Simulated assay, not measured.
Amino acid sequence: MLNHVTVLANPAKRGAEAAGRHLERLFADRAVEASLVRTDGSDAMPEWPEATDLIITLGGDGTILRAARKAAPFGTPILGLHMGRFGFITEGKPEDVEAHVDALIDGRFAVQDRVMVHGSVLRSGEVIHEAVGLNEIVISKGAMTRMLGLLMRIGDGPSMEYLADGAIVATPTGSTAYALSVGGPLMDPNLSALLVAPICPHTLAARPIVLPDSLEVDCVIETDGGEVKFSADGSAVFALIGGDHVRVRRAEFVTRLVVFSAASFYDKVHNRLLWGERVNE
């Protein structure tokens, strides 16, 4: 049963605030308290009421990713309404908002637990930075930096060494994001797995690999200088230097996403990524 809903609106998206006020009225008409909270699009998320049973985001996937880092430790479900450029994680559209509200009130929805990743940076054996992400942890070089030497180890397996522009450790949810653009496979978001994908490796031997999310990924950075960054979902950016260790594992908590159809992932990859379509016709 819903008692309090927080509507998180990104004012940078045209119509988001108006849609948020409309949601407040719709929930009030159904005797559910709702609060409109505005986010400025930065990494820092605004505070929302502790009694929140559900968060509805009005923006794009970036708004969901930022909300997830704050909501996940408390187990608060998130419903994303698409008002951004692409919106693969988002579940609904503002024009269908009344139907979505009725479905929420009537309990006609499901909540999926999505794996998150935790990344930490170790320097001289000490953790100096850490972050969590719903999509991925990324190690990447700057535009004018030479290729990185990456010494990577998965679990207790052998070390793998290769030159590349970086590496991605993605969740199944993140398999349709940055990892997809470097040749990684699509993964059903309900899988308990991680994906390791090198960025522009200078070898045919370094290919994307799917592994159980019980394994930890350890990567040592070798560089002769230049810009090297650690990031989580494009945020929590931290500068790396040669000799740093980046360790990535499954996070201790999950992001709980509201869906209205169990098949929505496959609908999205078909409709938005043209999976299974013949695009040459």
Results as ranks from 00 to 15, higher is better:
D40L: 03
G59L: 01
T76C: 12
K141Y: 04
A251V: 07
V237D: 05
T39A: 10
A170N: 11
L163Q: 09
M83I: 04
M147S: 12
A67D: 06
G20P: 10
E98L: 10
V121R: 00
R85Q: 15
A9Q: 05
E161V: 14
F265A: 05
G133Y: 03
S42E: 01
W48Q: 04
E17M: 06
L150Q: 12
A193P: 00
L257N: 00
R250L: 03
V259D: 02
A67Q: 05
M1G: 07
A193D: 07
H4G: 00
I137Y: 04
R85E: 13
E24D: 13
I168H: 11
E130C: 12
H245S: 12
D43V: 08
H270Y: 10
R85T: 15
I209Y: 04
A103Y: 02
G41F: 03
V169I: 15
L36Y: 06
G87V: 08
V246S: 08
L122Y: 11
H82Y: 07
A68I: 09
V248W: 09
R249K: 15
R30V: 11
C200G: 02
T173G: 09
G87K: 14
I56P: 04
R38N: 09
L274G: 00
S175D: 00
E136P: 02
V7C: 02
S175I: 12
Y162T: 13
M147G: 05
D165W: 13
R272Y: 07
G41T: 04
A68M: 05
I89D: 01
V97A: 15
E281N: 12
D40N: 13
A164F: 07
A262G: 11
A236P: 08
Y178I: 05
R249T: 15
P172A: 01
V121D: 08
A232Y: 11
G183H: 06
A71P: 01
A9V: 08
A67F: 03
K70A: 13
F74I: 03
Y162K: 09
A239T: 13
I137R: 08
R250H: 09
R256L: 03
Y162D: 00
L58T: 07
F109E: 03
T52K: 00
G276P: 13
I221R: 14
P73C: 03
E24S: 06
T173P: 00
R272V: 14
L211N: 10
T203F: 10
R153G: 15
T203A: 13
I154N: 11
G142F: 03
H270G: 07
L195G: 03
R247S: 13
L2P: 05
D267V: 13
G20A: 09
L211T: 11
R146Q: 14
T255V: 01
F86R: 14
D102V: 05
E216F: 01
T223C: 10
L186E: 04
G84F: 15
G75R: 06
A193F: 02
S192H: 06
H270W: 04
L257D: 02
D224T: 14
G80D: 06
A205Q: 12
E126N: 08
V32C: 09
E95F: 11
G62K: 08
A193K: 00
V127F: 08
I139K: 12
A251T: 07
H129E: 10
A206F: 11
E222G: 15
I154A: 14
L273A: 05
Q112N: 08
V220D: 05
L2T: 04
G59E: 05
A99I: 09
F253W: 04
V121E: 12
E161P: 03
D96W: 04
A251Q: 06
V138I: 15
M160G: 01
